[in-house]
């Protein structure tokens, strides 16, 4: 898996309320949630984000509640992956489970600027900044995590595994 996209940068401790404010959680339809993605961190984000864009954030991204709506709305907004210095525990779990690729790489976060175009190889963890020519290496996602993400989330992955078992 490889992703190429333009970077939007965010600071540290972006919590789940900033990612998707609770006031919009009267629905769980991904497209509806996407209309408010990151709204409380950057009100213009839902308008400017484009398919394939990449979020690069400081430490503890996704802290706060256990809502699965947070990674769901990021994915539905078209974001291809998120790179951060670190992720909060439940967000990390939920992101993998719903099929949003995430990478931890403090050097990349320090080196990449907003608007840079970067390429992320999920298998090797290599992040190439096409704008500056710099290369960073994130810890590659474990093969089993990649399989979950490639399948579009844990339940889709379960479906695939079950049908394989039957075949």
């Amino acid at each position: 898996m490889e992703f190429t996209g333009r970077v939007w940068k965010f600071g540290k401790d972006i919590d789940t309320d900033a990612i998707i404010p609770a006031r919009y959680m009267n629905t769980s339809v991904p497209e509806e949630l996407a209309k408010h993605c990151m709204e409380d961190a950057d009100p213009t984000f839902p308008q400017k984000v484009q398919n394939g864009d990449i979020i690069v954030a400081d430490k503890n991204f996704g802290c706060g509640s256990s809502r699965e709506h947070a990674p769901i709305c990021i994915r539905a907004a078209g974001v291809s992956c998120v790179i951060a210095k670190s992720f909060a525990r439940i967000f990390f779990r939920n992101a993998i489970n719903i099929g949003l690729p995430i990478f931890e790489c403090p050097e990349a976060v320090d080196g990449i600027r907003e608007g840079d175009v970067i390429q992320v190889n999920a298998d090797s963890g290599v992040i190439f900044n096409m704008t500056t020519g710099q290369t960073y290496t994130a810890k590659a996602l474990d093969a089993s995590m990649q399989e979950i993400i490639r399948n579009g989330g844990l339940m889709e992955y379960v479906k695939t595994r079950l049908s394989e078992a039957k075949a």
């Binding site: 525990r89 719903i98 474990d142 989330g153 844990l154």
Partner: peptide, 19 residues
């Protein structure tokens, strides 16, 4: 303890992923 999606997958596959 885990969330609902993890549990559903556990019931179906008898596996879970952990960090």
């Amino acid at each position: 303890g885990v969330g609902s999606t993890d549990l559903a997958a556990g019931i179906a596959l008898g596996e879970a992923w952990f960090k």
